[in-house]
Design a binder for these strands. Structure first.
Lengths: 207, 207
DNA sequence: TAGATTGTTAATCGATTAACAATC
DNA sequence: TAGATTGTTAATCGATTAACAATC
């Protein structure tokens, strides 16, 4: 098996989304249906699943629950990860309050800012910390992943600091492109998908 | 020239960022330097620029300001576009207040929500409107692009509504992947870059 | 001139997809 | 069996990159 092709990893969460949707109503699913859900080609889907050593039944399709479990395992959904948010502005606060992170296995354990006006203020159950404490907290193992929600000018410096402290997975928050169906240009992205893909590579690089 | 390769379009904003940075200090720039800034290969850069029919000087490099202007023109930075934000939750409010949108040529002209508690509240100079008015406003030509900042469950329905009303460019806001330098997994994305690329394809599909 | 850097060719790579034999 | 769908091959495609002649 070794490392999955990058393009495959990107599609796995899209398959998973469909599988979660239909897991209670359908027993099996075809490569055609999975392809439709992921904006891919059926042959593409079959190839992806064979990379996972996951096999279907000719004439029938793939077991929905088995495939769901297989993909979950591959993406490492079993683990929860502690994450820090750097930047307590509009975006940082929005992310800290965003339930989707926790729902997908990411626990926000700290929020940092460099501005005295923000430090000490509360976001949910967290108190915004001085960014100068970031390196220590990180070295303590409080978290192993960070989300950047700082202005562009500060991003590089904060990134250097995080890397220095040993962080191996950083998400620099901003919108991103995924598909362009039909005549309409839609940048369809799902935070959960990105995080899962990120998590996958994070685990790989740690290994 | 016709249509640029997608991969090239994605890199143009990255070149532009460097060019903006150095336009006051340097006269010329080499494909090597551009490559470094964009996380690409020097040959790749030279090929990209030749797609633009933009030529450098052997032994010297490319004119910083001329290249900057050429890329700006290609990405259509000259135009401003009116954009609506759908969803006045944390994310929608953060985006509406985010100066980067305007700075990059996107004017937020309306914010919508379906929740009575949000409707009528103000965000900056805008008053949140009932999402039921969206189709009419859109048909009136108030905006030609929309940013989705609604929960995942509502995204599809809102998208259908936007498409129905004639919107051809939709940005579904969420984080997104770009590069994976060295041992650290960094999803380095820049809202402005995405918007510029989006704008490019938006203009192309309109043509 | 000598050094530097472009512009382009050709090889290579990763990913996609049509097609179809295998087989439930 | 007959219909459906997988698994895999082979062709194709878009993108990357080493290499180097052209040339400032």
């Amino acid at each position: 098996m070794s490392e999955l092709p990058r393009a495959t990893v990107v599609r796995l969460p899209r398959y998973l989304r469909l599988l979660d949707d239909i897991s209670r109503s359908r027993e099996t699913v075809s490569s055609d249906q999975l392809a439709e859900a992921a904006g891919a080609n059926a042959a593409n889907v079959r190839r992806d699943l064979s990379y996972l050593d996951f096999h279907g039944v000719r004439g029938v399709g793939y077991s929905v629950t088995e495939l769901r479990d297989r993909i979950r395992r591959e993406l490492g959904i079993a683990f929860r990860r502690n994450v820090a948010i750097v930047g307590a502005g509009n975006l940082g606060r929005a992310l800290a309050n965003y339930g989707g992170l926790s729902r997908r296995g990411f626990d926000v354990v700290a929020v940092y800012d460099k501005d005295d006006a923000a430090i000490g203020s509360t976001i949910g159950k967290l108190s915004v910390r001085n960014v100068q404490k970031l390196t220590d907290d990180c070295s303590n193992g409080d978290f192993d992943m960070a989300i950047l929600a700082v202005p562009a000018v500060a991003a590089q410096q904060v990134t250097d600091q995080l890397v220095e402290a040993g962080i191996e997975t950083i998400l620099n928050f901003a919108p991103i492109r995924v598909g362009v169906p039909d005549t309409v240009t839609v940048r369809q992205v799902d935070l959960s998908m990105e995080l899962q893909v990120l998590s996958y590579y994070g685990r790989r690089t740690l290994a």
